[in-house]
């Protein structure tokens, strides 16, 4: 479904992504990594919003640069920051996407996705009155209205409470069962561990580990969690510079 071949992106001297190779099949795939690791950059290249500096990528068999429109017709993208028109109703927000995607029977389809995401009874209220979890679900409704083959999600559960997160994951799981490929980034490793078929941990634009969460944990042995795998693979600045946290705290303590 998704194939990245030696893909790179640099902003001046900084390499956000460097020679990334990755193959994603029909699955829920989680891209993990610290802030600034190149996760969003990768997603933006795959959704045709950023032009790769080198290498190439194919989504649903189409090149993201040469056939970008074919790619855009088959995917949906929900970025990190929630972008919804608060002065429009939930239904109007979804209908805009249905219209632009050229969905046939768009009124009916809009009603269906709103109901699918448990927003049916609030559809005619202004988004201004929605909670954070509802807004995220409304964004999913927008993304699902044209039945994409691949769904790209950038931090889909960021800033949501436990119940709202669980609800979002419930929806994603049922989409997966219906055969949708989901490519997502997240900081919540427990979620990735529970719901992703495979994950890749990237740092400074390079892949540090890739595989099913349980295999990655097995490699580390014992009762390791994905958090342990992550900390093991991703070296923080402090580790790299041999920053002595205890000594530093002692100094502060003395003052």
């Amino acid at each position: 479904m998704i194939e990245l071949i030696n893909i790179s992106k640099n902003f001046g001297n900084v390499w956000a992504v460097r020679d990334l190779n990755l193959k994603v099949e029909n699955e829920i795939f989680g891209l993990l990594g610290p802030n600034g690791a190149g996760k969003s950059t990768t997603v933006m290249m795959l959704t045709t919003l950023l032009r790769p500096s080198g290498g190439s990528a194919r989504v649903c068999g189409y090149d993201v640069v040469k056939d970008s429109r074919m790619v855009r017709e088959r995917i949906s993208y929900v970025p990190q920051d929630m972008a919804l028109d608060r002065k429009l109703t939930g239904r109007e927000n979804v209908l805009l996407y249905a219209k632009i995607y050229g969905v046939p029977n768009r009124e009916k389809k809009t009603r269906e996705v709103l109901e699918l995401l448990d927003l049916g009874d609030r559809g005619d209220e202004l988004v201004w009155t929605y909670s954070g979890g509802m807004r995220r679900r409304l964004e999913l409704a927008q993304a699902l209205v044209h039945e994409p083959e691949v769904l790209f999600l950038d931090e889909p559960t960021l800033g949501l409470d436990v119940a709202a997160r669980k609800k979002i994951w419930g929806h994603l799981n049922s989409l997966r069962k219906k055969g949708m490929t989901i490519f997502m980034t997240t900081h919540y490793l427990e979620e990735a561990e529970t719901y992703c078929d495979r994950v890749a941990i990237i740092d400074k634009g390079l892949i540090k580990a890739i595989g099913a969460p349980k295999d990655l944990k097995k490699q580390l042995g014992g009762d390791a969690s994905l958090n342990d795998v992550f900390l093991n693979k991703v070296k923080s600045k402090e580790d790299e510079t041999r920053f002595d946290g205890r000594a530093f705290r002692n100094i502060l303590g003395r003052r």
Partner: peptide, 13 residues
């Protein structure tokens, strides 16, 4: 600024 552009540019129109 609010992220609408990213969503719109990922649409096939």
């Amino acid at each position: 600024m609010l992220g609408f552009l990213n969503k719109f540019l990922a649409l096939p129109a």
